[in-house]
């Protein structure tokens, strides 16, 4: 088509809650499906998304999530859930299970499988070296294919890319 360089999108995942893991994975997958190059950089709490031990155990704590209303649970009244309820024991597990169920219904795969699909489709996954060091982690803590790089390396690798910070 054209002689220009291929379009490149880079996602920065800085949050590790379940609801903050999906945006980059879904948009990244859509980008790959449109022939766009994809790089995902995981930093701070976002590292949980690629940690073998936690990737399929990400949670959705309901406190502070205004969008979580009863309608999501199939209740006819779509009303907000009082924030104080969110701090009760077990509420995070309930909200997490609900979101997992909703995502599965939409044929969205679990995080580990999704990340493997992204890698198979050509996405490059990087862990932020400073956060890795800060948390005392090593390469072994992460899924296969993840490379640990510095923020400077990431900036070099994404020259000209469109950056999405999540």
């Amino acid at each position: 088509m054209s002689h220009e360089e291929n379009r490149h999108m880079a996602f920065i995942c800085s949050k590790g809650n379940l609801d903050m893991a999906y945006p980059a994975l879904i948009m990244g997958w859509a980008a790959l499906g449109n022939g766009v190059d994809v790089t995902i950089f995981f930093t701070f709490w976002g590292l949980d998304i690629i940690r073998k031990k936690y990737m399929d155990k990400l949670q959705l704590p309901p406190v502070g999530v205004a969008g979580m209303r009863t309608g999501m649970m199939g209740v006819p009244f779509d009303v907000g859930i009082p924030q104080i309820m969110g701090v009760l024991p077990g509420m995070t597990a309930v909200a997490t299970a609900l979101m997992r169920k909703k995502m599965a219904e939409l044929e969205v795969p679990p995080i580990s499988e999704f990340l493997q699909m992204l890698q198979d489709a050509g996405a490059r996954l990087y862990a932020c070296k400073m956060t890795v060091d800060m948390m005392g982690l090593t390469r072994e803590d992460f899924m296969d294919g993840v490379e640990i790089v510095t923020a400077g390396d990431f900036i070099d690798m994404t020259e000209g890319a469109q950056i999405v910070f999540i």
Binding site: G33, N34, A121
Partner: peptide, 25 residues
Amino acid sequence: LRQISLGTGIPTKELFQLFPKGPAK
């Protein structure tokens, strides 16, 4: 793309080799 991969048993990686840059479309 996922339905194609699951339905045909052809891995994602191979689908991207067969139909580069966006197999589903």
